[in-house]
Structure formats: structure tokens, C-alpha cells
Nucleic acid binder design. Structure first.
Lengths: 339, 339
DNA sequence: CGCTGAAATGGGAACGTTCCCATCCTAGTC
DNA sequence: GACTAGGATGGGAACGTTCCCATTTCAGCG
């Protein structure tokens, strides 16, 4: 059986089968119907015996297309990212592309490196969800006709399609729900916004709505790794005298996790103090009375990203104006917003 | 600025800089010190102006090495897998390799497909964590001198290094802890074991220890998507008359999630009924009195996998006998095992 | 019965690299 | 001052494909 120390080449298969390499190439590039049944049989048998696999490198080189989609993920350990990635992968697969994922750990240096890598592999399209501004490199890519789609975060200067949550609607839904449940004084917690446009947008809308609706509220941004600071911020908010029930709004899943920890440390009863998080997580239904969330349709977002890419790939001539594809969140009302 | 519709090639850079392509190649393959400072400057400038990036396809083709490590993951949405993957990625990066991850969704067909894909890209090593038995394909690969390392699950017939948790030790630690906390009657819940050796091993050890230690207990395997069945199984166990406190042992993170849901549905008080899960998850500290877990050192496992790969890659001559690298779990005692 | 055209097949030149082997130059040696 | 060793540089042949053009064969047809 398996014995050849080196991978067989198309030429060896051709020789073994007594046919030309062109025919073997045809066999493996989906042009089988151009081959006589007899030849197909011969090739199949030889290839099988030799354990031949087309070399994708050579293929990509010659044909100029890698059949590869690249994805840059800011944080692979974020379940939201993974869920979207899953959608992206499915869609790629469905269209005969493979996905090459790079995790950047929110590190601009890694973003640059990985971007170079994906470029080196000549990915035909790029799904980008990053923190920093590798704007320059991305612009260059875009200028070279590599389709680009931004995920969840717009990158100021880069002109490309963008797929993500309808943040305004999400905030509106959240506030409407909280108000309907009788909460009158709100604290919106977010990670620092400099790096991610969606955070800015959520916070911006939050402030807008407060003004417009005459709700009481404030926003705070802090790095999640400083648990004491977070506890202090929350305690400060809760201790303030007030005449309406208070609630916390978490701008994303990571925040929800950190805030939940902080609330437990502070011995706060959920529901009495409201809690609503953007992003649905496995465990939100499990904690205490259940944590109310706004779920993002992650798979759909992933698929939409790929669709957008493929569309541009199909019609490279007319560079359609860049679009925004926004999705509606779904409210999972649970005990944490029931008084 | 960015204008070239097509990527520049090494030849164009060479022409632009007035040097030979060989020199440009040297510049980009880490042989800069062989070039005079003047030449380095000229090349750098031309390459920068033209936006040149080495074509990894051509590189891989010619040099015969792709600088790529492949990883096959059974379930990308499992936090354990992701954590290990993170370790793998870091290690690859540290050694100048890139990682190509394929998620198989526990589907043998996808396993086969993705394996073919990775083969086509001529990955230099493969980290495998799969459910099915693409044994044949994997064997072929191994026979072709592609280093292979199995993650968490041994594949019966495939001879390769294996990295994972020390399952015997994990079960021992779990049982010792449960007994020390006064639980005397145990139910070990697992997903179906056919596909994953680690599950078999955990269950096997559990049964062994029961016999040896004279503990009361039983094991049950079921698919997690059938919540009612799980609830029935658990209710059955809890309703049985007994003279010692009862506890549940969850064989992995997914099980812990499902069991926790079931327990809530059954309105069981954690602690009174013990609960211990293998795999640490974000939320285990958050639920009720906290869920006791056995944490796997995921990053270390990932790194070990890559190390093992690289070791074999470095010495392809002497095919060292395949090893097992096992890691010790860490106990996080929490309220769910305190009576 | 020679002509046309389609279907089946094969030869060879790319694709963008790397790397082996020159070639050229300069400084050091006797 | 010829001789050499070694450093800097360049030319060209691969690597394993695809794809453009042949070339061959043969059925159909006026």
C-alpha cells in the first residue's frame, strides 16, 4: 500500500496510466466529461494506486486563483467571533472555497503579519474583523482588487462592504425593553471604544436615546481585565440615590461576563437590578434568574459576509459602491430584567 | 500609490531595481546579509514602491515546503477546542509556521474533504482532533512522512503521537474529591463513546475505580441534543433510594452544560447533589454556588502538539516510536461539591 | 469519395519562485 | 605581480500545474 516516500505528481500518474498529463489534469479539474470512459477508468485507477493528490500550490500558481478566502479575527476566544466564523466557513465550503483563519489577539502587529501572510497566499477575498487600523495595508489590498468585507467593525478610512448588527436598533430594543420592565436609571458598560466602531455606535446611540427619551443614565468604558475598577464603577452607580429601579446594559458578550462576575462579587440580586447583555451566550440562561440578552444572528452574518465577497468576485469590472448589511437582533427576555 | 492592477512579481522588482531576480529572492528569504548595503537599499525601495509580496504559492511549489501546519478540529464551537487551537496557533507562529484550521462539525464526510484539502496544500504537519475514523487517509499521510499528532483522541489504527489529558488521573482526582466531600453514589454522564477514545478511557477508568473502591455508581452515555432523555436519566438516578449523598460527574464541557440545564429543569440544588465537570468554562464559577471543575491546561496541550510535530519534522530520518504526552488536570473546587 | 467539423487526446509554454552553478571582482598571500 | 580564496552577483533550470494549440480520428454529408 502506502509506500511512496514522496507525493506522486500528475506526470507520474499520466505515465502510469499511459495517457498525457493534460488528460489527467482534465480529470481532476472537473472536465471529466471530455474524457472517454475508458480513459477515466485508467486515470482513476492509477491515481488511486499512486495516492495522487493535486498540488494546490502548483494549481494556484498556474491558474492565478487560490480558491482561498482569508479571515482575520480579532479574538478567537470570543464565542461571537467563533459563531460568525462558523457561518463564514459553511458558506465558503458551499461555494468551493476554503477558509484560512488568522487570529490576531487584538494585536496590531499580529494583524499586520497575518495580513501579509494572507496576501502571500493570494487569498481571493478577505473577511476582516480587527481592532487596529491596518488601514493602509487593507487599502492597498482593496486597490489591488481583492474584495474585502468588514465584520462588525467599520474601519474609518477603508472603503469596503460592512456586515454586522444594526446597532441602533439593538440599543433601541434594549432600552425599550428595559423601560417597559420599569427600569428608569441605566448604566451602559462597554470596553474601550477607540478600536471598534460598533462599540462607538452602541454607546453613541445610547447617549442619543437618553437625551431624546428623558431617561436617566450614563455610560462607562473600561478595560475588562481590571475587575476591581469595574466593581467600583458598578458600585458607584448602584449606590447613587435614585427614585427608579436601576439596570445595567452590557455592550457585548465579554462585558456581560465581566459584569456578571462583578455583580456576584457585589452580591447584587439580578432582576431587582436589571441586567441586559448584547450577544447571546451558552450560559446566560443558566445564571440565577437567567440573563436577558440580545442575540445576534451570527451564522447569517457570516454567510452574508461571504456572499458579499463572492458577489464582488463575480463582477470585478463594476466596482459597486460599498454597502452595509445590517442584521436585526433578537431579544431573549429572562429573569434578569424582571422585577 | 496603489495602482497596479496585478500583484508585482519578483522579476518586476528586479528590473525596477536594476538587479537580478536572484538577489531579490535572497533579500526576501532571509539572506540579506549576503547582499551589499547598497543593493539592499535599492531592492527595499523598489519592492516598497511596487507593493511587492512574495507569492507563497510559487515559493511552496519550488521549495517543496509550505510552511503550513494543518489542524482538523471536530467542533469549533467547543471552547476547549478553541483554547487548544489558540495554543497551537501561538506555537506555530513562534516557529515561523502558519496554521490552517479546518472545522469538521463532527462529520466524517467533512473530515475526509478537509483532509484532502490540507493534503492538497501540502501541510508539513497535522494536528488532528476528529471524531470519525478517516483512519485510512491518515495512515496514508503518515506513511508519506507527514508528521501527525492526535489531540485528545487516539485513533485506534493510526500510529502517531498523542497529546491530551491524563484521563486516568482526571477520573481519580474527581472521584477522590467527590468522596472526600462525602458523596457516595455517583453517576458519570458522557456523550456516546464510539467516536472518541478519551471518552472511552474516562468511562473505563470510572468503572474500574468503582469496582476497586467499592463506591456505588453507574455510567450513562447519551447524545446531548435529546434534553428530555437526559433529564429522565438524571431523574432516575436521583430518585433511586440510597443511603449516601449523590453526585454527577460530567465527562466533558458539553456534558456539563447539558447536565446543568437538566438539573435546573429538575429544580435540583447544587451541592446537596454534587456536580463535577471535566473542562473549565467561563461560566462555571457563575452558576449558583459555582460548579466544581477539572481544568485542562489547554494552551500547554496546544503547544505540546506543535512541539511534537516540529520534533519529527526536524528528524525525519529516525522515526521515533510514537509517544503519548499527557497532562495533569487542575481541580477548581467550588460550591457544587460542597454539602 | 473527398470535405467539414466535432470529439478525444497530447505537447509545450507559461505561472513566480528557489537554488545550483557560474562569473566577476577584490584583497590577501608568497 | 601572478595566484587564490572568498564575497557579491547573475543566469537558467527546475517545481507541478493549467491552458492554448495542435493533431488525430471518425461520423456525416452532398
Amino acid at each position: 500500500m502506502a509506500d511512496s516516500p514522496r507525493r506522486a505528481t500528475i506526470l507520474e500518474v499520466a505515465r502510469d496510466a499511459g495517457v498525457s498529463k493534460t488528460s489527467v489534469s482534465r480529470y481532476f479539474s472537473g472536465e471529466r466529461d471530455r474524457l472517454s470512459p475508458d480513459m477515466q477508468r485508467r486515470i482513476a485507477s492509477s491515481a488511486g494506486r499512486l495516492g495522487y493528490r493535486p498540488n494546490q500550490m502548483a494549481r494556484g500558481l498556474k491558474a492565478g486563483r487560490s480558491r482561498l478566502i482569508g479571515m482575520l479575527v480579532a479574538d478567537i476566544r470570543n464565542p461571537f467571533s467563533v459563531a460568525v466564523m462558523h457561518g463564514v466557513e459553511q458558506a465558503c465550503r458551499a461555494h468551493g472555497f476554503s477558509l484560512m483563519v488568522c487570529n490576531t489577539d487584538n494585536d496590531p502587529a499580529q494583524e499586520r503579519d497575518h495580513l501579509a501572510l494572507l496576501t502571500a497566499y493570494r487569498v481571493e477575498g478577505l473577511v476582516v474583523n480587527v481592532t487596529g487600523r491596518p488601514g493602509h495595508e487593507l487599502e492597498a489590498l482593496a486597490a489591488q482588487d481583492t474584495p474585502l468585507v468588514l465584520l462588525d467593525r467599520a474601519l474609518g478610512d477603508v472603503e469596503a462592504d460592512m456586515v454586522g448588527l444594526d446597532n441602533d436598533q439593538a440599543i433601541d430594543t434594549a432600552l425599550d425593553h428595559l423601560r417597559a420592565q420599569g427600569y428608569g436609571e441605566l448604566l451602559c458598560v462597554s470596553e474601550p471604544t477607540e478600536q471598534a466602531s460598533s462599540r462607538q455606535q452602541r454607546l453613541g446611540r445610547f447617549r442619543e436615546r437618553l437625551d431624546a427619551d428623558g431617561l436617566q443614565g450614563e455610560a462607562c468604558c473600561l478595560a475588562l481585565d481590571d475587575a476591581p475598577a469595574l466593581e467600583r464603577a458598578i458600585a458607584g452607580f448602584l449606590d447613587r440615590p435614585s427614585h427608579a429601579p436601576k439596570a445595567l446594559l452590557c455592550a457585548n458578550g465579554n462585558v456581560t461576563l465581566a459584569v456578571t462576575r462583578a455583580l456576584q462579587a457585589l452580591d447584587v440580586t439580578l432582576g431587582e437590578t436589571g441586567l441586559l447583555g448584547i450577544d447571546e451566550l451558552d450560559w446566560c440562561a443558566l445564571v440565577a434568574p437567567g440573563i436577558t440578552t440580545l442575540a445576534q444572528p451570527t451564522e447569517a452574518i457570516g454567510r452574508a459576509a461571504v456572499d458579499s465577497l463572492l458577489q464582488r468576485l463575480a463582477a470585478p469590472e463594476r466596482p459597486a459602491p460599498s454597502r452595509q448589511i445590517l442584521f436585526t437582533p433578537e431579544l431573549n427576555a429572562r429573569g434578569s430584567t424582571r422585577r
